[in-house]
Design a binder for these strands. Structure first.
Length: 257
DNA sequence: AATTGACCCAACCGCATCCTC
DNA sequence: GGAGGATGCGGTTGGGTCAAT
């Protein structure tokens, strides 16, 4: 069957955007707002694919973008969120106002990966390099473990405080290097021994449901992180789907990320 | 000064997901 | 419930910049 192309490729520009194209796109969105990317290029007089326009706006032209280097605090937030979420760059970006998923993805691949490797941590599993456990299943346990020490980045700590990572005992270490200290404390899942005996692996993310939040309903991850619309959460109840809520169903018992 | 290689980032591509009919 | 279109996401790549040789 095949999918129809998103645009007429023969009549679209590709490659770097010119200043004039940027100006046209910004002017159009200022006048008409975002939305309907497919028809936007034609309406704005741009010989570009709608996807390309969206990407350019989201990653470069949006007025609320924060330019410049990432701070150490942002580094730590990214690392910790990556430990929980994996390569869900858009979700991670949602917790870093002014940063885009593309920017974070690039930053991860060029800086943070190296930083973690220098610390002796596998950037994919967030576990010590070279250990047999690094390639073993049960990664989620250590993503949770990393959370238990999320205290060095105040902004994340605020969010982390709302995460329902239930632990039957306090963290084994008070080290501020959560990923390293926690990952070294785990056991092997395939050995029959609990990998992290002190961990409850129920990763249902979020605070205890509020009275007005039916637990059986899917909820916005931002909501479960305790971030309501207006701060880090950009979700809008009035526009589900495109630009609106991103739903994350609570995990069933025994279900893992 | 020229060349080379590493690094970085903007942009593209294909697939997944959501939404509407 | 299924088909098709629109949008979003993540992986990958192309090309510019800069330091080392």
């Amino acid at each position: 069957m095949g999918r129809s192309p998103c645009c007429e490729k023969a009549h679209t520009n590709k490659g770097a955007w010119t200043k004039e194209e940027d100006e046209r796109l910004v002017a159009y969105i200022r006048a008409h707002g975002e939305g309907c990317w497919r028809s936007l290029p034609k309406a704005a007089g741009l010989l570009r694919c709608g996807k390309s326009c969206r990407l350019r706006w989201m990653n470069y032209l949006r007025p609320d973008l924060k330019r410049g280097n990432f701070t150490d605090e942002e580094d730590e937030i990214i690392i910790r969120l990556h430990a929980i979420l994996g390569n869900k760059w858009s979700l991670i970006a949602g917790q870093l106002p002014g940063r885009t998923d593309n920017e974070i993805k690039n930053y991860w691949n060029t800086h943070i990966k190296r930083k973690l490797l220098a610390r002796g941590i596998d950037p994919q599993t967030h576990r010590p390099l070279g250990s047999a456990e690094a390639a073993a299943p049960g990664v989620v346990a250590h993503r949770a473990a990393a959370l238990l020490h999320a205290t060095t980045a105040p902004a994340l700590a605020a969010a982390a405080a709302t995460l329902a990572v239930k632990s039957s005992s306090p963290p084994a270490s008070s080290s501020d290097d959560g990923a390293r200290s926690s990952t070294s404390s785990g056991g092997g899942a395939s050995t029959g021994e609990p990998r992290c005996p002190d961990l409850n692996l129920d990763l249902s993310v979020g605070p205890p449901p509020a009275a007005d939040t039916p637990t059986s309903q899917p909820v916005c991850l931002c909501y479960r992180l305790g971030l309501r619309a207006g701060e880090a959460c950009g979700c809008r109840a009035d526009k589900p789907g495109a630009g609106g809520f991103r739903y994350f169903r609570p995990l069933e018992q025994g279900q893992y990320i």
